[in-house]
Nucleic acid binder design. Structure first.
Lengths: 336, 336
DNA sequence: CTGTTAGCGCCTTCAA
DNA sequence: TTGAAGGCGCTAACAG
């Protein structure tokens, strides 16, 4: 069944023209009689012919492909970002190659040079040194999830996000607010630091001493954090988690402990991942898909040299209030 | 900065050998002195040279790339499958191109011919006619999520999954079991039908008349189903949802209605998506990542002709009991 | 074991 | 407006 795919020559023969003419038509290059153009198009269709990016790339030096590098495809977040990336690239007729790089230590060993026109990294929290490694690929690099001066970046304003979230809780009347952040070993990622900073600065402005708990990321971390909170002197009336995942862990641990949300404790996450809606979890919307779309568009523009290679795109965040946050009990009781 | 990437010639010059020797070394072809081999390797590394799949593909007729076609990357499920696909392909040194095809109506228009060695579709529920369209690409086609005779397929035993789930509920003592399935318009997908069939056959064996509610998929559908159930003559004591997503909708609707899980109603999902663990939702494990891995491995094998092009791989499911299912209240009360 | 030669399918000159 | 010729980077035959 897998017969040899038709080549440009087949199309040329069928249309009764030369190779170059077919090439011109398919590249939408000018200088072909409309009538001929139509005939060539038809022949190509009939043969279900598609230009081999392989061959054309050899000549033009462009592959028509962009590599998207993610740490993993399993967490919901990365799929959502890539969804946007793919869509945006598609608009510019670029294909998306996806590489899962377990850790960033082998980023330099990817078969990227000559195999993709650009590289988009998704939330890998790369150090400058690692960026250099990717630079050696010799193609433009677009970073998402981190801001690095002099490089193309797409990111959300993490700091503003947690700042707004914190204000949301303060405005509801909370003062005993615990912040749950992530730490892997002793390392705190850039975005985690930014989120923590946003929280702490607002707490500082309010004259309240921050109450920070750092645990490994993921919902296990959220559960561990609750364990720590529950064994302390006093309970918070609100918990702000660095990520929805951690908030989910908190949610579960509180539920299992019989602590009602939001009656006893208000809970907020960050990321607006799908299930937060189902759980009625108040969260900070960060629209990962939009991050992807912006990154894809920026990449296409950089390739066409219509935007500089060090453009920064900052996406806004917004609070999505749901039922997991409410005024603390004391306030409600005293005001009723 | 983006200097011209080094080519094979550069490596050859640097190592003081001919092009073919370099080619042989990098292809791990036999017939090169170990000493020379080593020298070439080093030169290539120093130039951070990577073979252009573009150029080599031109000659070999193989691209070193496999296209994964998904309806969308946003739902958690597809990312999980692709995660496995990517990993498996990587073992065979194949890259993964990801295409999001909104609907299956344009599957034939993808730039696939000559641009990928094989196509893997993920849960697109393709009709035979649409498969034919993809066949015209001229490369092997591997389907996941559906079983089609004569084609390479990787799928879970949906029927057995819901059958086991139903038995689980029956064994707990439930008899008023509602099944929530999905229907888009009047169309029911193949896997939905299989799941429903598994449920109904076990109900039939037990001599209980099935109680089926069909709604649009997603958690909105789950909520709608609850709406229907709550307005009926009598409430079920257990609900089995076709998918975790629908189960999540049920979960939310029940929670909002103040109906306790599992005290008033037991709830089961299907899919074992990440959040079910957080929600303590009993579910049918289907390991999407494994589906992907199997599909990737099968694809690689088919390309190497070590497995036939119509291999079927059926993955087992298993029940993951959690806290959302329990014996119905009457039973518990009467036995206590 | 190593080097030479001839394309793979296409795009880009240049000439007609 | 069209066609012919050369070469992109690599591999697969062959010679040596």
């Amino acid at each position: 069944m897998p017969k040899r795919p038709s080549s440009m020559r087949d199309v040329a023969r069928r249309a009764g023209v030369s190779l170059s003419t077919v090439s011109r038509v398919l590249r939408c290059a000018p200088g072909v009689a409309p009538e001929v153009r139509e005939r060539v198009r038809r022949s190509a269709d009939e043969l279900s012919y598609v230009v081999s990016r392989n061959a054309s790339g050899l000549v033009t030096g462009r592959t028509g492909r962009v590599a998207a590098v993610v740490p993993s495809l399993e967490p919901w977040f990365f799929g959502a970002v890539l969804s946007g990336v793919g869509e945006a690239l598609h608009r510019s007729d670029l294909d998306m190659l996806v590489y899962q790089v377990d850790v960033r230590d082998r980023a330099g060993s990817l078969p990227l040079p000559r195999n993709s026109d650009a590289v988009i990294t998704v939330a890998l929290d790369l150090a400058e040194e690692e960026c250099r490694l990717l630079d050696r690929v010799g193609v433009p690099l677009v970073l998402t999830g981190q801001r690095v001066p002099g490089r193309a970046c797409v990111f959300v304003d993490n700091r503003a996000g947690t700042a707004a979230a914190t204000r949301h809780l303060l405005n509801l009347g909370h003062t005993r607010i615990a912040y749950i952040g992530s730490r892997t070993g002793s390392h705190i990622s850039r975005s985690s630091r930014d989120r923590l900073a946003g929280h702490e600065s607002v707490m500082g402005e309010a004259g309240i001493r921050p109450w920070t708990v750092l645990k490994p990321s993921g919902y296990e971390g959220g559960e561990l954090a609750v364990g720590e909170l529950l064994s302390g002197q006093t309970l918070p009336t609100a918990v702000l988690a660095e990520s929805d995942d951690m908030a989910l862990g908190v949610h579960r641990a509180l539920r299992r402990s019989g602590i009602a949300i939001p009656d006893a404790i208000s809970l907020m996450g960050f990321g607006n991942r799908d299930v937060t809606e189902v759980l009625d979890l108040t969260t900070v919307d960060q629209v990962p898909r939009d991050i992807g779309v912006e990154a894809g568009l920026l990449t296409a523009d950089i390739l066409e040299e219509t935007r500089p290679f060090d453009t920064h795109v900052e996406l806004p965040t917004q609070i999505i209030p749901r039922r997991s946050t409410a005024a603390p009990k004391e306030t409600r009781e005293s005001s009723s």
